[in-house]
Design a protein around this nucleic acid. Structure first.
Lengths: 242, 242
DNA sequence: AACTGTAGTTATTAGGCATAACGATTGCCG
DNA sequence: CGGCAATCGTTATGCCTAATAACTACAGTT
C-alpha cells in the first residue's frame, strides 16, 4: 500500500480525477477568454489538453454539465473576488467599502466577459442550466457583501431616500420570508435597497461589458462609473468621498 | 403590364422578395420566443415556412446576416415601443413620462427575452455583429426618450443630486463631442444623468429578464420595479407620484 | 499472476451549416 | 402571345461537432 489513507479521505484515483476535472474547466475557460465566446468545442478543449474529444465524456456527461459546473465556479470566483476586494479597504469607511465592492464587481466582469456572460447572460444554446439551478442561490451569496454595507449604514443611522421609501406590503412579506444568506434578519427596506443597488450596479457593468459604452474612453468610463456609484451611495445615505 | 409602376418604385419581384425576408425574420423570432433561445436552426425556420433550409440562403448569406438583420429590427421595435409608450401619457407629468418609459423598456424585455438578449446579451456564437455595428447608434436612438425627460426636468429647474453632481472634465469633453441623436446641445451633467439612469433601469430589467428575481412573485417584482424607478426619479429631481 | 475498474483510444451515428448543381416557375419584353 | 432569363426552389453533397459504441491499456488490488 503506497500510502495510508484516512477514512473518508479521497483516494489517489479520486484526486487525479478531480485534478483532471479542474484542468478541463480551466482549459475551457481559457479558450472562452481567447475566443471571446462561451461557445467552446469539446474537441478544442481536448486538443489543448493533449486528449481526444470523447475522453471528456468520462468527466462530464455532456456540454451542459460542463457549462453548469463552470457557472458554479464562476459564482465562487466572483464571490471570492468580492470577499478579497471588500477585505482590502478600511472596514469603517462605508463609501470605500461600497466603492471597493462595486469596482470589484465591475473589474471582474470586465476581466472575464465570457465568465460574466456565463452567469448573467442568456445561456448559450438551450438554457437548461439556469432553471432554478445553483445560480439563484449563488447570486444571493455573492451579494452578501452589499448586504453588509447596507446593514452597516442602517446601524449607523444613515438613511438615504432609498432606505426611507415605503416598501410595498406584499413585497415586504416575501423579502422577510427570504432569510438572506447570513441568517440575520434584514429589514425589508434594507433588503429592497440592497436589491436596487445591485440592479443599478449590475446595469452599468452589463452595458460596459457588452460594449455599449465603447464610444467612451476608458478614463471616461471610469469617471462615469464613479458617478454611478456615488449616486447609489447617495440614495443609500452613505456619505460620498472626502 | 399588370400594373403601372412609378419610377424607382419597387417592382413586383422586389416586393415579394421583401415580404419573404420579413417572413423569415418573423418566423425566426417566433421560434426564438417558443424555444426561449436565440439559437435558431435554419432548417426549423424553413420547415415552419414550408421550405427547405438551403432556400433561406437566397435571402441571407449566412446565419450571421440573419441575426444582424434581426438585431436591427429589434432596435427599431424597441424604439417604436418606447415612442408609443411615451406618447400614451400626459406629456407634462414627468414622473408619468419616466415611469412609462421605464415600464415600456421593462415590458418589452419581458415580453421578448430572446429579442432583448439579441440586443443586449453577448451575441450568440462568434460576435461579429456587435463590432461597432448598428447597435451602438441604435442604442442611443432608443434612448432619446430618456433624454427628453432629463432635458425637460432641467428646463423646469428641477435638479436632483444626480444632476447636481460634478462631471469629470475629460468625460464632459467626450460627452459634449457626442452630439446626442437629436442634434441638440446637451449639458454634460444631463447627458451623464441620462446614461446613469439608463444603466440603472437596464440593470433591473436584465436581472429580471434573466430570471434573477424569479424567487419573487410577479406582484412583488412590480413593486420593486416601482421603487427602483422612484429612486431614479429622485436622483434626477423628478418629483414622485402624487 | 489473474482480476477489476477506469481512462483513454478509434470508429460510427446523428444533425447542423453551408455550397453545388440542377429544375421549375414567373415576371417581363419584343 | 411566345420566348427568355432571372429568380426561387429543390435534392445531393461536404464538412464540422456532439455524442455513443466498442475496443485497448494500464493501475492498483488480491
Amino acid at each position: 500500500m503506497p500510502q495510508d489513507q484516512l477514512v473518508g479521505a479521497p483516494t489517489r484515483r479520486e484526486r487525479v480525477r478531480a485534478a483532471t476535472v479542474e484542468e478541463i474547466k480551466r482549459t475551457a475557460l481559457t479558450l472562452m477568454r481567447e475566443q471571446a465566446t462561451a461557445d467552446v468545442r469539446f474537441a478544442d478543449i481536448a486538443r489543448a489538453m493533449g486528449l481526444t474529444a470523447p475522453a471528456l465524456y468520462r468527466y462530464f456527461a455532456d456540454r451542459d454539465e460542463l457549462l453548469t459546473a463552470m457557472i458554479v465556479d464562476a459564482f465562487d470566483d466572483l464571490a471570492a473576488a468580492l470577499r478579497e476586494g471588500a477585505a482590502a479597504v478600511e472596514p469603517d469607511d462605508l463609501w470605500q467599502r461600497l466603492m471597493a465592492i462595486a469596482q470589484t464587481y465591475r473589474r471582474w466582469a470586465g476581466r472575464d466577459p465570457a465568465q460574466f456572460a456565463l452567469i448573467f447572460g442568456m445561456p448559450v444554446p438551450g438554457f437548461a442550466a439556469s432553471k432554478e439551478g445553483p445560480t439563484a442561490d449563488a447570486a444571493k451569496s455573492a451579494m452578501a457583501h452589499l448586504e453588509v454595507v447596507v446593514l452597516a449604514a442602517i446601524d449607523r443611522g444613515l438613511a438615504g431616500p432609498m432606505l426611507l421609501g415605503e416598501v410595498d406590503a406584499g413585497l415586504a412579506v416575501e423579502l422577510e420570508h427570504d432569510h438572506g444568506n447570513s441568517g440575520k434578519l434584514i429589514p425589508p427596506a434594507a433588503h429592497q435597497a440592497m436589491l436596487l443597488s445591485w440592479a443599478s450596479l449590475h446595469g452599468f457593468v452589463c452595458l460596459e461589458a457588452y460594449g455599449q459604452f465603447s464610444w467612451l474612453s476608458e478614463g471616461s468610463r471610469d469617471a462615469l462609473f464613479t458617478s454611478h456609484v456615488r449616486t447609489a451611495a447617495a440614495a443609500l445615505g452613505v456619505p460620498g468621498p472626502v
